[in-house]
Design a protein around this nucleic acid. Structure first.
Length: 287
DNA sequence: CACTTGACCTGTCCGC
DNA sequence: TGCGGACAGGTCAAGT
């Protein structure tokens, strides 16, 4: 579900809410909570204090005082929601998105010393949590293969263009979604950044010039930064650490905007199936 | 190795 | 209203 801006929004929220808190108990669904579950899970969780919450690509890393880290991938529908004393009443705008917790899709519940809780919810069960020694996190296959962070200050347009070279024969949409090229791009920001750069999603990577990569680099950073400002994109399931939705989609140019006028040229936005995903673009001004 | 396709799950929406 | 099929923001394994 969440892409880089959504996961980063959750990370920022969790940093405020759970760093310094100590776990007193945990409940997990063995199959889809901690798939590697054993007595070790409780051994390194109970009594552990949260030291930091980090992010790499779309993966969240919750570092514990036991020198272990909870590694979380939310995939399509995962949520990490913190609840203190108060929860949403029936009249709250988000009450329909998520009400009382835990619910039927709760996979893991961590309870802290003051009774506050962190819930890992996941309707489609694609997401996962793992507990492992902090020092081993960089050795996860995904961590070794994943590309650079697109919002890092020292990431240049030249490096961005260079990363795409080995995917010259595929189309630009598929290449953008490839996490080994650049980290954190998913379907929403792939479509939005291609619109910003005026590049058609079917264009072959090898046919793009320096100028195209420069525009795509700029466009990707623009849409991701705007989304961070708006608290991410809530399509169906996404919620931040406080259980609130994000507003980026109110500002989207093409994503979920099929059959509405392109904000740039006025022609109708199209939706097709491409690179295995719903793909939104303006057939008039994206070439 | 590069590239594409299907599988993993549940819920919802759309057409008949 | 009921039912089948397509589709949903991500990644991986297995196929060509």
């Amino acid at each position: 579900m969440p892409e880089l801006p959504e996961v980063e929004t959750i990370r920022r929220g969790l940093s405020e809410l759970i760093v310094g808190r100590t776990v007193v108990s945990e409940v997990h669904d063995t199959e889809k909570g901690f798939p590697n579950a054993s007595t070790d899970v409780a051994a390194f969780l109970i009594g552990a204090t949260v030291i930091a919450v980090r992010r790499r690509a779309k993966v969240l890393l919750i570092d514990l005082s036991t020198e272990h880290t909870v590694v979380v991938h939310l995939k399509m529908t995962g949520q990490l929601v913190f609840r203190g004393e108060q929860s949403f009443g029936a009249g709250h705008p988000n009450a329909s998105l998520i009400g009382k917790l835990p619910d039927r899709s709760t996979r893991v519940t961590l309870t802290f010393t003051d009774g506050s809780r962190l819930y890992f919810n996941d309707q489609r069960k694609f997401g996962w949590m793992r507990l492992m020694p902090t020092i081993e996190v960089p050795n996860i296959d995904f961590m070794k293969k994943v590309g650079p962070e697109p919002l890092e200050a020292d990431f240049t347009p030249e490096q961005f263009a260079e990363r795409f070279k080995r995917r010259a024969k595929t189309n630009i949409k598929a290449a953008l979604l490839d996490q080994t090229v650049v980290a954190g791009v998913g379907n929403i920001y792939a479509d939005e950044s291609l619109w910003e750069a005026r590049i058609h999603p079917k264009r072959l990577v090898g046919s793009l010039g320096d100028n195209d990569f420069q525009n795509l680099y700029t466009g990707l950073r623009k849409v991701m930064n705007l989304s961070l400002e708006k608290g991410g994109s809530t399509d169906k399931n996404y919620l931040n650490a406080e259980g609130k939705s994000g507003q980026y989609l109110d500002h989207a140019s093409v994503f979920r905007k099929e059959n509405t006028p392109c904000p740039r040229c006025g022609n109708l936005v199209e939706k097709i199936r491409w690179a295995g995903r719903g793909t939104h673009f303006c057939p008039h001004c994206q070439k």
